[in-house]
Write a protein that binds this DNA or RNA. Structure first.
Lengths: 157, 157
DNA sequence: TTACAGTGTTTGAACGTTCAAAGAATTAGG
DNA sequence: CCTAATTCTTTGAACGTTCAAACACTGTAA
């Protein structure tokens, strides 16, 4: 709950400059709109959310279409719990299979089924088109590189 | 559900270039990490999520600390339903009050209470510090302007 | 060998968001 | 006017995510 703790004195605060405020406002709009835009499009296409598609895409590129849960979580930036629930959903649809690894009995491998693979293949063109439409068609080549660097800086831990 | 519709032929797809892929990967990480980072910090500070803080911030700057639901939804980029639930939560805490407008009886005004205002005041310095830490301290002044333009382009409808 | 810390994964309840539906008040057109 | 379309807001169920707790297995070190 609330902790009224060592807060900086209001006078000492380095408030945002005008251009920082503007950037922050726009960034917030992206954070709110982009994920739901993709979720909406993918849901319409195949009742999928963006992170689910991404996980399937990762799996489809992995050797044997198979990855350790931990590896997926790291690549897709998901918590173990979130991934576990997510894989559960995909499993229920028959798109992914779970089976324990042979060497380390703690680890679970997630494998894309043939149907799962077919779904990714089917969805990929549309998804790429959407990414273009919602992101890259709106940017110059220079801005794409700027975005890479900016996003990498922000996403770094 | 699934609709196997006019999908572009796989051969015709304009796949992402190498640098677009990189930008997309980094952007995805931002979309996943930044919101939960802020939610975590605000939750720890006062059991609030980012959008709730933003709504309170908007209200705190409005004349009479009061705004129509529609106006908040537009500014904060929230669906009517999402906002209604959100205001309900803030109301339950005594930070916001709901009352019907006098001229148009359909519209509801949300007003920040004294306690609500105090909370925003108390949280603002910490929040600004967090925004700096997670975003602007990581960017050059030039990148801040680039971010403004890029984010505005992506967020545009 | 046993104990203990660490790793990999799951579980279920609590929470915030979405979605479709609805109600209530206003506006526009005939 | 009267009706129909539109606007503003809420509701509740379904869904995905978070969080804390738990369990099983591995590694380590006494």
């Amino acid at each position: 709950m609330a902790d009224s703790q060592p807060l900086p004195d209001t006078a000492d605060v380095a408030w945002l400059t005008e251009s920082e405020q503007e950037a922050w406002r726009q960034l917030l709009r992206v954070l709110l709109r982009l994920p739901s835009a993709f979720d909406g499009l993918l849901r319409q296409a195949d009742d999928l959310v963006l992170v689910e598609y991404n996980v399937m895409a990762f799996l489809s590129e992995a050797p044997g279409r198979s990855l350790k849960m931990t590896a997926i979580a790291a690549e897709a930036d998901l918590s173990p719990s979130r991934l576990s629930h997510l894989i559960g959903r995909l499993e229920k649809r028959g798109w992914v299979l779970r089976h324990p690894a042979t060497d380390d009995k703690r680890v679970i491998m997630a494998t894309l089924t043939a149907e799962g693979y077919a779904s990714v293949q089917r969805l990929a063109p549309r998804h790429v088109r959407d990414v273009r439409e919602l992101v890259f068609d709106r940017l110059t080549a220079e801005q794409v590189d700027q975005l890479s660097r900016i996003a990498a800086a922000i996403a770094a831990r």
